[in-house]
Design a protein around this nucleic acid. Structure first.
Lengths: 207, 207, 207, 207
DNA sequence: AATGAATGAGCATTCATTCAT
DNA sequence: CATGAATGAATGCTCATTCAT
């Protein structure tokens, strides 16, 4: 009876996904508040009023949970930025919005980035670090390169090394975010955002 | 006879400090290789051929060890950069060297920075994060501001917000370092170094 | 259907409580045999054929375990004595039975009192000592005072300081128990019991 | 040169004994303040401004130290009581003074008895418990029996079981001391002393 | 006589994970 | 789906003890 089992499966998947999302959000919250090393399944479960067994049921171990959590953060931020960038047509405007919307999202979702910085330490082997790099930075750099090409096609941008420039722009955003994670009062996110977007747009424009 | 008591004191300090340095270096190495969460006293001790009890004897607990390790990294890098910057006299040259020597030191001491990124996650409370920020970023930003003022006094640099510019420069360095920690092949440290130093010197110079 | 939920709750509590009781009894046995300082979770677990993790699961740390163990001893003895005293009506008979049933219970549960003497040393701070005093001696002295008042109301007992007399009677019982714990052959519990009950009854009776 | 070496040896023994006494007193103080389980060689050494290696040098291990400490307490108390009892000639007076001087010494040396109660838990095997009983209680009971015999010879005391009566008297003293150790406010030492001495003298006197 | 570096065994505790219900 | 009892391995840490100096 495949016809019968299908709806059941779909329903399972729905609840399943809702639970996963719920658990991931609770995990991020707990990590942001108490730090990654202090965050156990028991702690997350307690904050949700469920048992830790249930977390183990929905995730294939701790590694799965934190991997999912990291991807959730990156996907949400990526979706937000992409949406904002698509509203613009000119390359320079797209770049400006890429940088500024990055900071917007960061400033509005502090706990996620506090958690993210903590989670960087959860990759033990070079392979895991590389995998994280691929899934976290590569899409960003690819997005930036796409923007570059649009600017070049529009004869707005000059010549420069795309890969390095993408790394530099993304690095500048992340490095400021990092300082802000450790001490939100130490860095003015809005001022930094303006400074960076202005500087990089000027840098990329044809002489 | 103060002359006699001195050598005794030095010897005491010498063995103690040599051990601490030895343990810190082994800890950094192990953290870089296996990740912070996988790095136990037992692991560090094994890599040194000593017992874990000895680590507990020389450090006031794990917190003391990793705090000392972080400060060691930052002090070494700070000393290196300061030495290089002092060789220059012009503000623009100082800034250029600040950025380039930062990357030089980073590229020559990879494992220390791999460890550092892991150790960021070891600060659990906002207070600890703030304390790290104070001891790690404040001195960097202060150094940069000093360079700014020299450039301004020499009528080389124009007007800009010092605190924000310091955050932005340091952030750009750190953000690129971060990408390079996760995947050394993904980012060209030398090219990024050149790009950043050129861009920031141009940005700060009087119009 | 409250009738249905009740058994579920009882079963939960039942397993939990059964385990706690089992662990407490094993702990008392082990303490009596090997001494408190030699009694580790591992030792208790081994004697039960369970893992030490399970003890940590059912008790909130070692302090919780030994506190529960002490209360178990005192509650059991208290319940036994109270039951025996209630069978009597006359004040003098109640007092006699209080003393004699104390010794009866002690002599029939040696290991519990061997453990108890060991556990006295587990209270480190004056506050903990005071708390133990409140929960261990206060109820005994209160019970004795209640007996005194019954004897006075029945015009059997004369005048005396209640608090001091309660301390003295309880102290005499405990002090003999203590000698018997260190060397069961050195003191004749039955003879001491008779001597004390006779002496105190005579002391309290009206001249 | 035996004449020369002798004084040196004596001096060594003198220093040796002075150190042992100093360490024992520091140990008792620390145990009374922090509890036996919290009292390490390091703790004792710190309170004296010496190193823990020195304690190990002067004592044959921890067992030796605490055994010596216990004997010190008991010897001091025993000497005090014996001195006071010898001043009396009549059996009843001797008994009265035995009890009262016991409480006097206890009340004036609280920390020693707080430590003693803690140290009871340091005897792990029945053999050690028995040995403690022999060295602690036997002399007390022997002393009491000697007093009994004097009273009997003086035709003051009647007939009773000596061993049991000695246990009961010593037990009553110790039991009250015990309550006072846990909470000094819960029991009036002087009133208890008077009550006990009066009661036991009356009990032993010929009808 | 005294130090302090070093050991090594032992400890309570934490925690992801498993599994019967 | 969900529970919670149970596991077992790992961890930081304590501490008496040893020993070269």
């Amino acid at each position: 009876m495949p016809a019968k089992s299908k709806p059941v499966e779909e329903k399972k998947t729905f609840i399943e996904e809702a639970r996963r999302k719920q658990i991931i959000d609770a995990a991020l919250q707990t990590i942001a508040e108490q730090g990654y090393t202090q965050t156990s399944f028991a702690e997350i479960a307690k904050s949700l009023g469920i048992t830790k067994g249930l977390i183990a049921y929905h995730f294939n171990g701790k590694h799965d949970l934190i991997t999912s959590a990291i991807h959730t953060i990156l996907n949400r931020q990526g979706a937000y930025i992409r949406g904002r960038v698509e509203e613009e047509t000119k390359g320079s405007a797209k770049l400006r919005v890429y940088i500024e919307s990055s900071f917007e999202y960061i400033s509005q979702n502090r706990s996620q980035f506090v958690a993210l910085v903590d989670l960087w330490g959860s990759f033990t082997s070079p392979e895991e670090k590389k995998a994280f790099s691929d899934s976290a930075y590569d899409p960003c750099r690819a997005h930036l390169k796409k923007i570059f090409r649009i600017g070049v096609e529009q004869k707005e941008f000059g010549k420069f090394d795309e890969q390095s420039m993408a790394s530099v722009i993304q690095g500048a955003i992340d490095g400021i975010m990092l300082q802000w994670v450790f001490d939100p009062k130490a860095v003015d996110l809005q001022e930094s955002s303006r400074e960076l977007s202005e500087m990089f747009v000027k840098r990329l424009k044809k002489a």
